[in-house]
Amino acid sequence: MQRYFIDEDNWQDGYIAITGDDYHHITNVMRMDIDSEILCNHPNGKVAHCKIEKIDTTTVVVKIIEWLESNTDSPISITIAQGLPKGDKWEFILQKSTELGVSRMIAFQAERSVVKWDDKKVNKKFARWEKIVKEASEQSHRNKIPSVDGVLSFSALLEESKNYEWKFFAFEDEARNRQSKKLHDYFAKINEGDSVFVCIGPEGGFSLNEVEQLLAASFQAIRLGPRILRTETAPLYVLSSLSYYFEEMR
């Protein structure tokens, strides 16, 4: 059943008014009609099973049939901070990380990031990023849409990480050291409801200066297996590992 995330202002007295891109998707892409059934997500994470009652030129009105007991989000809050990569890799990371249960996505300008984005370019791209995570949340039947931050400086990134209970960064030197701690070594210490912050470098990895700052900010250097992963692969490895441990093994 098709799922849509609807703004809080559109919910009223057992009915939901669907407009904009979702209206277009329902009427022109899915070609739904009166009595078609859909799922609607409230911003608070609750899910309603609904039936279409009215379609006009700008709005689809649906009636709530029942509220569903559904929670597909991760039992831990996971933030991925990604060193700004080249090309469309960031959009790929946003989409796949959403499917794998991330709670928050942050891009940051690393010393070795090949691309440099100013505020004007970020503002131009931001609406697209939000659309990507919304559609990925609908496709993967999530309860909430992950938040997406604009591109932060490295110092701003460290400031954002201060209130997290667990902070890690993937470091390629650790991959070469088989005696180093793995992400899995920390899993047993992480409790449901904890917040986890994972920092991933760009294509060229972290600079020595960045590594020193991360360690000084109480980040733990971890390895993601014995191989050196591409920047777009690393966050997916982390999220898949956390999902398997906390959602399948427990």
Rank of each mutant, 00 (worst) to 15 (best):
V61H: 11
V61F: 11
V61T: 15
V61Y: 12
V62D: 09
V62Y: 07
K63S: 15
K63D: 13
K63Q: 15
K63L: 13
I65L: 15
I65Y: 10
E66K: 13
E66Y: 00
E66P: 00
W67C: 06
W67T: 13
W67P: 06
W67V: 08
W67N: 13
L68I: 15
L68F: 11
L68P: 12
L68R: 15
E69V: 14
E69F: 13
E69P: 10
E69C: 12
E69A: 14
E69R: 14
S70H: 14
S70K: 14
S70V: 13
S70I: 13
S70C: 12
N71P: 10
N71Q: 09
N71C: 11
N71M: 07
N71G: 08
N71I: 11
N71W: 11
T72L: 09
D73C: 00
D73G: 00
D73H: 05
D73A: 01
S74W: 07
S74F: 07
P75K: 02
P75F: 00
P75H: 05
I76C: 01
I76R: 00
S77I: 08
S77M: 06
S77L: 06
S77C: 08
I78C: 02
I78Q: 01
I78S: 02
T79Q: 00
T79A: 00
T79V: 05
T79E: 01
I80L: 05
A81D: 02
Q82S: 02
G83V: 04
L84C: 07
L84D: 05
P85H: 04
P85D: 09
P85Q: 02
K86W: 08
K86F: 06
D88R: 11
D88M: 10
K89V: 08
W90G: 04
E91F: 08
E91S: 10
E91I: 07
E91D: 14
E91P: 08
F92H: 13
F92Y: 15
F92M: 14
I93M: 06
I93Y: 05
L94M: 13
Q95M: 07
Q95E: 15
K96C: 06
K96I: 03
K96V: 01
S97G: 13
T98R: 09
E99D: 08
L100M: 10
L100W: 06
G101E: 02
V102I: 09
V102H: 03
S103R: 07
